[in-house]
């Protein structure tokens, strides 16, 4: 291991730094699909932490993380904000306190979106200069913060929202959700 300017060079571990694609067949099981997406978000968090620490510039990895935030994460926010959450608001029982939970998660999405813009700006600068993130002002701090926020958000969704969704959404709800998740990704699912 080599130490450069107080930054520890973490040897790249390709298998840990991949964001696996979600198997398309999971679209038929929308709650599993969303759960799998959360797993991919955790993979992104691992990459962000790695990039925040890395002494050397891994430009392809930065570009992949940037693309994921730009496309996959943005799509996932629509999956939830304008699909799963409104559906849950209609289906949940009063005791579920769904509005409070969703209100918090939507607030998280808003905060994440703001921080995502900052992180993407750091990536753009690092990519343009072909330098590691630690050479970008506030870069490591913002990447770590984004990863921390995202992990907490996913944990709350997995612990509260997903079990509620499994309990409250019926078969027809899930079929309709499947078709919309697929359409959002350019796939038309027959009923």
């Amino acid at each position: 291991m080599m130490i450069i300017d107080d930054h520890v060079e973490v040897p790249a571990q390709p298998s840990r730094l991949l964001i696996e694609p979600t198997p398309p067949e999971l679209l038929r099981h929308p709650l599993d699909f969303l759960f799998a997406e959360h797993y991919r978000h955790r993979q992104l968090c691992r990459i962000l932490d790695h990039l925040a620490e890395a002494a050397a510039a891994d430009l392809p990895l930065m570009a992949r993380a940037d693309d994921f935030i730009r496309y996959d994460l943005a799509l996932h926010v629509i999956d939830e904000e304008e699909d799963l959450f409104p559906l849950l608001r209609r289906r949940c029982e009063p005791d579920d306190d769904i509005d409070q939970v969703i209100g918090r998660l939507s607030g998280d999405h808003r905060d994440d979106a703001a921080l995502a813009r900052t992180v993407r700006a750091h990536f753009a600068e690092a990519l343009a200069k072909a330098v590691p993130i630690w050479k970008i002002a506030n870069g490591p701090r913002d990447l770590r913060q984004f990863a921390r926020q995202e992990r907490a958000h996913v944990a709350l969704e997995n612990a509260v929202v997903m079990p509620l969704a499994r309990a409250r959404l019926g078969g027809e709800d899930q079929r309709a959700l499947s078709r919309r998740l697929a359409a959002r990704r350019g796939i038309y699912l027959e009923n």
């Binding site: 904000e81 304008e82 959450f85 409104p86 608001r89 509005d99 409070q100 969703i102 209100g103 918090r104 939507s106 607030g107 999405h109 808003r110």
Partner: peptide
Amino acid sequence: EEMAQIADFETRVNAMCE
């Protein structure tokens, strides 16, 4: 009262749209 439960304004807007 019901809308006030939704802390995030944009989410409240969407709930009101519905």
